[in-house]
C-alpha cells in the first residue's frame, strides 16, 4: 500500500467546533500524520487547512472519521466554488 498525501480544508460548525476532533483523530489513527497549515475560528464556525499523509486506506478512514464527527471535508484545490 503506497503512501499518499491529501490537502484538505476542514469546516467545523453545528457544535463540532467545541469538540477536540483533531485530538480524537490522532488517537484513532495514530499512523495518519496531520500537519496544520492554518486555522481560523469564529463564534459559530471554524476552518482549518490540514495536510494528511499516510497509507491510502488509512487516509480514507481518517476522512470518514472526521465527517462522522460532523466536520465538513473539502479538497484544497477544486473544493471551493469559483466564479463562473
Amino acid at each position: 500500500m503506497s503512501k499518499a498525501t491529501r490537502k484538505v480544508w476542514l469546516t467545523f460548525e453545528g457544535g463540532c467546533q467545541d469538540e477536540p476532533v483533531i485530538w480524537k483523530l490522532s488517537q484513532e489513527y495514530p499512523n495518519v500524520i496531520f500537519d496544520i497549515r492554518q486555522a481560523s475560528i469564529g463564534k459559530a464556525i471554524g476552518i482549518m487547512a490540514l495536510e494528511l499523509s499516510g497509507k491510502e486506506k488509512q487516509l480514507d478512514k481518517a476522512i470518514k472519521f472526521l465527517q462522522s464527527n460532523g466536520v465538513k471535508v473539502d479538497p484544497v484545490e477544486g473544493g471551493s466554488l469559483v466564479e463562473g
Binding site: 460548525e13 481560523s40 469564529g42 463564534k43 464556525i45 471551493s80 466554488l81 466564479e83 463562473g84
Partner: peptide
C-alpha cells in the same frame, strides 16, 4: 462572522449563485 457558511443557492440571479465563494 469573519468566516462564511456555504449555502445551496436558490435564486433567479443564477450568474451570481455561488454558495461557497
Amino acid at each position: 462572522e469573519e468566516i462564511f457558511r456555504p449555502q445551496k443557492p436558490k435564486t433567479i440571479a443564477k450568474s451570481i449563485a455561488i454558495g461557497n465563494p
